[in-house]
Structure formats: structure tokens, C-alpha cells
């Protein structure tokens, strides 16, 4: 029971992270490979402010989102001249920068020792935690669905499809990109806080390339610019490696096998059907 609950909670958290990633990548066309760094920023903000400074839960959540949002604002501004794979590389290298800061700023982040995170009493129980995650997932999914179906969502699609044409129609494409990525980063930052509470521990290596590949796999399997696809894919991608658990393998084999599975799935979907299950848009 505990196992199922924890797995479902994890799916809830990852679903929101992946949905907000899709807002930037699929709906707006920003190839942002530093998404996991926003998650890390949220997780560490929460770990530090809640456990060490004793700030209240709500404030910590909002600040986690805001910090990620501000950093995203800086990133998109710094990368404003990059397009295509150079944008991907610029954001990826930014992800490395954040990662290395978290590793190195030992006095604040605990470096490679990581940080223990206390859970607030009201979500200490697994069921309560799960209910909170479901609540957040429903709220964020609703907000994202509303955004992408609104005229604002159409504008994002215009920026994705042809930025020059969007500008010729009088749309401030740069501002639109900023808005999209800040929303995406804010939600991810909040979920980073939730993840920190869920794991009760944060470590720099939770936020490296592996997590990026997991999220990429979810979004590509589900399909770009499809929220429903991302939701379905989160279940598929997080449940598949659970099969490994029942084969009674030692954990030293399960760890790498999981990663091998994800990389192979991502490669296969890119090779065979890069539009994913419900994708509406192709990667360029």
C-alpha cells in the first residue's frame, strides 16, 4: 500500500513537471534543457528556507516558485539571441552551471552531502501528502490547460511556428517567450519544493542529466503540445521501470537498468515516431 501510494505521488509530481516543460518546449518552441535546474532551485529553496530558517510552508512554496521564475527570466534574457540547437546547448550549459553551484556552495547547500528536509506535520502522513500532490496537480493542470486553449496559447503557438511572422503581426515574441518560460519555471520551482518534501532529502545528483532525460522521455512520448499526452506518458514512463522491481534484482543493477531503459525508450521514440502518442507538433 505504501509502495503504491508513494508511486502515485511520484507520478503526480512528475506529471506537473513534465506538463510545465511541455508549455515551454511544445507550446512555445523554447528548447529549454535547463528545466531540471528550475526544479533543483525550487527543491533547495524549500530545503533551506523551511528546514533551516523555519519559514512557513506556504511562503516557502511561493518563494521556491519565484526564485525559479526569476532565474528563468535571467536565462531567457541571456539566451535571447540563440536559436535552435545553440539555444539547447546554451540552456543545457546553464543547467550545468546551476548544478555546479549547488555542488560547490557547501555552506548553503551542503554540497555533495546533501540536505535533510523536514516535512510539515500536516503532510507527514503519506495519504495526506498524496492528497496535497493531487490537489496541486489538478490546479496546475487546470491553469496550464486554460492557458494553452486561450488566445494567449494561440500567441505562444504563433511564436513557436514562425517568430518573424508573429512579430510582423505586432506580437512581442520576446515578451511572450519570457512569460511562457517564467510560468513554466514557477510551476516547476513549486514542484521542486514538493519533491524535496517528498524525498525528505535533496542532493545535487538528483538534478543532473538523468532527470532531464526522464522528463524529456515523458514529454516526447506523450507528444509536443499535448497536455493529455504528457499525462498519459507520465504514467507509462514511471510505471515501466517498476517491472524491474519485481524481478528481484539487486539495487546496484536496478539503478542503471532504469536509466538504460529510459535512454532506449527515448532513442526508440525519436527514431520511430518522434511525434509521440498525441503530439501535434514536430521537433525541428
Amino acid at each position: 500500500m505504501y509502495y503504491v501510494l508513494s508511486l502515485l505521488t511520484q507520478i503526480g509530481i512528475y506529471a506537473v513537471i513534465a506538463l510545465s516543460f511541455n508549455l515551454a518546449l511544445g507550446f512555445t518552441g523554447i528548447i529549454n534543457l535547463s528545466h531540471i535546474s528550475f526544479l533543483a532551485l525550487g527543491a533547495y529553496t524549500t530545503a533551506i528556507l523551511y528546514t533551516q530558517f523555519g519559514m512557513s510552508f506556504g511562503v516557502v512554496m511561493v518563494l521556491s516558485g519565484l526564485l525559479s521564475g526569476c532565474v528563468a527570466l535571467f536565462l531567457i534574457y541571456a539566451c535571447r539571441k540563440l536559436r535552435g540547437d545553440y539555444l539547447a546547448l546554451g540552456t543545457l550549459s546553464f543547467h550545468f552551471v546551476i548544478y555546479s553551484f549547488i555542488r560547490n556552495l557547501e555552506t548553503i547547500t551542503g554540497g555533495t552531502r546533501g540536505l535533510i528536509v523536514d516535512r510539515p506535520a500536516f503532510i507527514n502522513d503519506g495519504i495526506n501528502f498524496f492528497i496535497m500532490v493531487v490537489g496541486l496537480a489538478v490546479v496546475f493542470t487546470f491553469i496550464l490547460a486554460r492557458i494553452v486553449r486561450s488566445p494567449f496559447g494561440t500567441l505562444l503557438g504563433a511564436v513557436r511556428d514562425d517568430e518573424k511572422l508573429a512579430r510582423a503581426l505586432g506580437k512581442d515574441s520576446q515578451l511572450l517567450k519570457v512569460k511562457a518560460i517564467v510560468i513554466s519555471a514557477f510551476i516547476t520551482g513549486v514542484m521542486g519544493g514538493v519533491l524535496a518534501f517528498f524525498l525528505r532529502y535533496v542532493h545535487p545528483d538528483f538534478f543532473f542529466l538523468y532527470e532531464l532525460v526522464t522528463i524529456l522521455t515523458i514529454v516526447i512520448i506523450g507528444g509536443l503540445a499535448s497536455l493529455r499526452g504528457t499525462l498519459i506518458a507520465t504514467f507509462i514512463v514511471l510505471l515501466i521501470p517498476e517491472i524491474l522491481r519485481f524481478v528481484a534484482l539487486p539495487s546496484s543493477i536496478i539503478g542503471p537498468s532504469r536509466q538504460i531503459l529510459y535512454s532506449i525508450i527515448l532513442l526508440l521514440i525519436l527514431l520511430i515516431h518522434s511525434r509521440g502518442i498525441l503530439g501535434k507538433v514536430d521537433l525541428h
Binding site: I31, G84, D85, I220, Q259, S263, L267, S274, L283, H284
Partner: peptide, 16 residues
């Protein structure tokens, strides 16, 4: 396939 796909594939290969 575009360069972004190749980049993603190469990251997947790296982890693999």
C-alpha cells in the same frame, strides 16, 4: 531529423 532531435538522441546515448 533536425539537430535538436540529434542532440536529444546523443544525450540519451550518453546515459545509455
Amino acid at each position: 531529423a533536425g539537430n535538436v532531435i540529434l542532440l536529444m538522441a546523443s544525450i540519451a546515448l550518453l546515459l545509455l
